[in-house]
Design a protein around this nucleic acid. Sequence first.
DNA 1: GCTTCCAAGATTGTACAACAATCTGTGAAG
DNA 2: CTTCACAGATTGTTGTACAATCTTGGAAGC
Lengths: 220, 220
Amino acid sequence: MTAPDPAPRPTAKALLAEELRERILDGDIAPGTPLREEELSRSHGHSRHTVRSALSQLAAERLVQFIPYRGARVADLSDAEVEDLQALRGALEAEAVRLLHERHGDAWPDEVLSPVRAGIDALADAERGGDWLDITRAHADVHRRIVAAAGSSRIADSYEQLNSETLLLLTAVRSLYASGALAEEHRGYLRDIQSGDGAVVREHLAHTSQLIREARRSRS
Amino acid sequence: MTAPDPAPRPTAKALLAEELRERILDGDIAPGTPLREEELSRSHGHSRHTVRSALSQLAAERLVQFIPYRGARVADLSDAEVEDLQALRGALEAEAVRLLHERHGDAWPDEVLSPVRAGIDALADAERGGDWLDITRAHADVHRRIVAAAGSSRIADSYEQLNSETLLLLTAVRSLYASGALAEEHRGYLRDIQSGDGAVVREHLAHTSQLIREARRSRS
DNA sequence: GCTTCCAAGATTGTACAACAATCTGTGAAG
DNA sequence: CTTCACAGATTGTTGTACAATCTTGGAAGC
């Protein structure tokens, strides 16, 4: 009996997509920037065909927008779309929390809480480190771990996608949290969601949305 | 001021994807069937490149599974994956219902209810017609309209995707509902969800899941 | 001066062909 | 009966070419 595909060899398309995704999420390529096939082809040493598949892969992940005969550009979300995105994230995270409560009641076991706590510890480290990108990713990771704990791989997958998009829209924002109190805030959040109440999730996200909105405003 | 892209001309890739999607959802091509690039290329008169992009588009929609060097085949969901899929659908529809309740209270206005009622009427027609495929699609459409009414295009999009997948897994099942009482059942459902209670949604979906599970069992 | 329209240039979409990389099945060797 | 190697099948990637479409700059008309 063999394990089911632990590591399917990466194709050139996948590698290229990975590299571009990385650069986009690092803010190396700003939202709205056109991604020219010919240019990427030259700079990355792949054929235009391969570039095209990598781009359409990223388009499927919504990191780039692809319009026929007009090419691909790094996605640039409107305020309304940001709002919508957060609503969707809320729906998934609230459902994850509800499932966890349904299964474990008001006091979740360590096997559930531990990974999340580890994520929060990593977030605390990142905050001490002070690098904004690290903090953002550590923050996203805390939420991802909460959703993953619910055990629905499908919900976790969808959430993962959205996380990626959220990271993207945060690239334009360089200093969301001045305080450095994120880790502490999330310890409280982890305590509160054990009630299984979706309203707690939505309130938390609404707070984040608010910060994002302000940050975007101050920068346009 | 021009309207924002009402109808971007369809590319060959999009047309081919559309055609394949249609055939897959109609049950014309059974789950598990391999989709050979060369063969599709010949039979549809497109280059292998075009076939490949169409296939990877469908893979992004999860209608086909794509494994490097092994090709694409029509997706075939395990029971666990079906369960997971329903959980995700539940999360989205419950959130849509919650949003609608938040906005409209316990008695939703006609502008919200009308499209859904129209969908239910269409479902009733389909039931009278007796064609199983029509019934399934009309049923899916009722739920889609409920989610769409919530006004979050992002949630609606995600739900649409899942609907497509659900339709796919139903292709293997030819007689879910013997009764022909679907339309009536959904009039009741539409009444009940106006309370905004997600539990109503989950219960309804659980019922559907149960039927799907039995139907799959009796056929393997 | 301003708008309208057209013609290059730029960019993407699709095709054909070829070869490399990888999987799969079949039969020989043990 | 199992293991292994090899040939055939299939996918991954590249190169090139051309068609389809968008974009831009400027000429013509008001």
